[in-house]
Design a protein around this nucleic acid. Structure first.
Lengths: 356, 356
DNA sequence: GGCAAGATGGCAACCGCTTGCCAGAAGCGT
DNA sequence: ACGCTTCTGGCAAGCGGTTGCCATCTTGCC
């Protein structure tokens, strides 16, 4: 084609036909690098994202130019053509829930290790608002981690049909999930209480929509039955400290010598209300919580609780998600997931009934 | 118009000359809407983002089409040409720091109210890693909120030169910041202790790099001096529970009758170690913390502490940031910022020296 | 009825980066 | 040396929106 010659001849124009160049202001782009290194922008792109694809000398030249310009790839520009954002979202209903600490920690670490950014989004309100939040964040992330979610199964599946989703502390049919093994810790708890001499236990449950509350009840129930102990349920309750306080009266009425609360917050509420009512702990009432949250050992007596490997759970959930989004760091489908077993942490809020 | 007829006649062509159309898979785009509504994509764009710019009937038709297609604008595609992401980042050094609860809460709420998404990013490690995290997240957000940051002033200014930045709980020259008014609460505290009969106080300080620790010391110092009380400093210390535990011995050695800790975590450590050593609280030692974190009232005795309006602070910081990024919901430069005054919460860990 | 100001909507050029396709150069086997 | 495979790197078409500019239609007004 003669075009080429024509182009070459017109080269003397101070502004070559190349598209853009150092716009002066604004961050440098691959066009700037291209110009500096004397190559085509596409070559720069390859040098930067497909090591080995181009000649090593050229690649070095480009890297040098990039460094000189202090170039940083624009993640949104990159995301547009590829559809991948290198970002994962962790959606939670309530970020002040101490249970999330470990989860966020572990998730953050695993994500960072794979070069992914983790964004934590909170939806303080109802499930509907949470669905909205999810939909809003979904387009800008590669995958979604659902933790203390108030979404129902079908909403979750709906999300899962659009982007990879992993649920934490819950099982949803057809959606990947990470759930610590409740059984171990509960079994330990029941044995612990049984050995202390307790024969009558009451479970103060969480919200009726809480998968985990139901699950804990089921396991507890089976374990208790196996020993011929008696078990009652008080609930459903909101998973808060106040709900624990409010449940105290009914716990006393139940006549049980030991109470297992759905979570530490409720257990602490129970504990404080018991003390306020002159009940001697743990002699007159043994209390066990779940999660071993921050502060659960500040109480008097310190709370006996079933600890979950939250940090590991968060980490594993992210790995799973990374696998699902096809990231290098992610584990394959059949990868052996490390055991996430719960364990009983015995502190001061449990003792033999009648002990002083 | 004859055009209309022509269009209608040529309609038989299966693939009209329009660019893209419902690709089958993938989310619907404005091109799909354009096709369905029989207008140009640019018109769709306008209908969706500039209400009133086009004819109301057309606009309605487009909205109907959008609804029918379940269209949702692709935020990254939108961000590319505009440079605005409608996202704000909150960068923290340690997300398990209970101080952040309120801040995150308030920030999240204010951001959501303005239609912005708040992403929380954690950088568990050193200031350098934090700088890296900041740079990584910066390109995809409109502004940055720095909270428990370990960045130094110059690093912060560097960031601020690229995108709007607001710092929380700290003052940095040339960078907007939100800092609760420490003075009120500290003054109350000193008066409280003075009235109880304390004349000798010791301050267990935080990290040497903590602007807030220094600030609290300064205010405390001034207030104490004004009353002719004696004040000593023990530190610097890491702002942790363990550091509080470790500082106990030196607190006793100081002979002070009351101790003010940089934060609640340290105060609680102090409190527990004191109890463990048989010191009767609060009679033999009064303890005051800062922040009123979650769990600070679980202790025995419950902790007296200086509460900061963290939630308000988070909210206000976001408003400031929104103003800086030119968002509608943000407040102008001179907008009157609501008072963020701290207050003393008297609980059980303070009493007259020698009281039983 | 004629004309200027507004209203309306199309065109096309980006935003910064990725990638399929392809041509020319280099390396290779026989 | 020659035909062929492998390297290299350029071209250009997007990704999904946004927006300046402009042509055409409406209106309002004298």
């Amino acid at each position: 084609m003669s075009d080429k010659d024509v182009e070459g001849a017109s080269e003397q124009a101070p502004t070559p036909p190349r598209r853009r160049a150092r716009s002066g202001r604004g961050a440098p782009t691959i066009y700037d690098i291209a110009e500096l290194a004397g190559v085509n922008p596409s070559t720069v792109s390859r040098a930067l994202s497909q090591p080995g694809r181009i000649n090593v000398k050229t690649e070095q030249r480009i890297h040098a130019a990039a460094k000189e310009l202090k170039y940083h790839v624009n993640p949104i520009a990159r995301a547009l053509p590829t559809g991948r954002t290198n970002t994962l979202a962790l959606l939670v209903a309530d970020i002040t829930n101490p249970v999330l600490f470990g989860i966020v920690r572990g998730a953050e670490r695993a994500a960072a290790a794979a070069g992914y950014t983790l964004v934590v989004a909170e939806s303080q309100e109802s499930g509907d608002l949470e669905a909205t939040a999810a939909r809003r964040v979904l387009p800008s992330v590669d995958g979604l981690l659902l933790s203390t979610t108030r979404l129902d199964d079908s909403q979750i599946r709906e999300l899962a049909s659009r982007k990879p989703v992993v649920v934490l502390n819950r099982e949803v049919d057809g959606v990947e999930g990470v759930v610590p093994d409740v059984a171990v810790g509960v079994e330990e708890t029941v044995r612990h209480l049984y050995d202390l001499g307790h024969r009558s236990i009451v479970y103060v449950s969480g919200p009726s929509t809480s998968w985990m509350s139901r699950r804990r009840w089921d396991v507890l129930s089976a374990s208790v039955r196996a020993r011929g102990m008696s078990l009652a349920e008080i609930g459903p309750n909101r998973p808060t400290l106040d709900a624990g306080v409010a449940a105290f009266a009914r716990v006393r009425l139940s006549g049980a010598t030991a109470v297992v609360a759905f979570n530490d917050l409720m257990a602490i509420g129970l504990l404080r209300e018991a003390t306020r009512n002159g009940v001697v702990l743990p002699g007159q009432l043994s209390i066990v919580g779940f999660d071993d949250i921050f502060g659960s050992d500040f109480t008097t007596p310190p709370l006996t609780t079933v600890r979950s490997p939250l940090e590991d759970a968060g980490e594993q959930a992210v790995r799973l998600l990374l696998g699902a989004v096809g990231a290098p760091g992610g584990e394959g489908v059949g990868a052996p997931s490390r055991d996430l077993r719960t364990e009983l942490v015995v502190r001061g809020s449990t003792a033999a009934p009648g002990a002083r």
